[in-house]
Design a protein around this nucleic acid. Structure first.
Length: 216
DNA sequence: CACCAGGCAAGTA
DNA sequence: TACTTGCATGGT
């Protein structure tokens, strides 16, 4: 299929231009999950500050995050924006982890196939498709392709998907044409985000310096 | 000053 | 079903 070759060429172009990304930056799967919630519609720079505070307070561990009052948790993550909302969302996630696997993330993966696990994650208030897939790929190392606003912008901009493409359809473009490989999906999403940040794909035409220009 | 950032849920018509 | 709005800080 031609799309497979196109997607592979795009990947190689980005990797050649930017190099390996080394995602997800975190010390533990739980920290990755917390970061996934905090980065919802928020710059990673602001998320890092919140993660630093959580680390200092020794709260990047599910049992202690469960124990701390929500208002205290909210103050810790103030820099990440939507902080009252996200404190509630983190509490929801921690409750889910307690009830579903007693904080044993490996057991979570062992007990459910990835698609059932995705449904469970989506049932948590505050966990939508991107956050669920981010948790599955970067924290639980399942071969799930993460799609986000950058992915859509880039693919739409290059005429590869129509304007009103929904999350699942965009995700299918990748999963239907690439092998289900954790390392590949990890790096591919990371590269799309990094390209999206560096090359102004918002209003102007794609810059001449964009590694993806040749795919227009 | 305006605008954006690695979304999501709830409300409205 | 298909929009719209609230959530909120910090950088450019």
């Amino acid at each position: 299929m031609a799309k497979t070759a196109l997607l592979t060429d795009m990947y190689e172009a980005m990797l050649g231009a930017l190099g390996k990304s080394g995602w997800w930056p975190s010390a533990s799967p739980f920290e990755t999950i917390v970061g996934a919630v905090l980065t919802q519609n928020t710059s990673w720079q602001n998320v890092e500050k919140a993660l630093c505070v959580l680390r200092e307070r020794d709260l990047l561990e599910p049992g202690r995050m469960e124990a701390v009052p929500q208002e205290v948790l909210a103050e810790c993550i103030r820099s990440s924006g939507y902080y009252r909302l996200k404190a509630q969302r983190l509490k929801n996630v921690v409750s889910f982890l307690r009830e579903s696997c007693d904080f044993d993330l490996a057991a979570l993966v062992a007990d459910f196939p990835a698609d059932r696990l995705r449904e469970s994650l989506l049932s948590i208030k505050g966990v939508g498709p991107e956050t669920a897939d981010t948790i599955l790929l970067y924290a639980l190392e399942q071969p799930v392709f993460v799609v986000d606003a950058y992915t859509f912008r880039i693919m739409n901009r290059h005429g590869l998907v129509p304007e009103q493409t929904c999350y699942d359809d965009l995700q299918a473009v990748f999963t239907d044409n690439l092998s289900a490989d954790v390392a590949l999906f990890n790096e591919y999403h990371a590269l799309l985000v990094r390209i999206g940040k560096s090359w102004c794909l918002k209003k102007q035409p794609v810059c001449e310096s964009c590694p993806l220009q040749s795919f227009l």
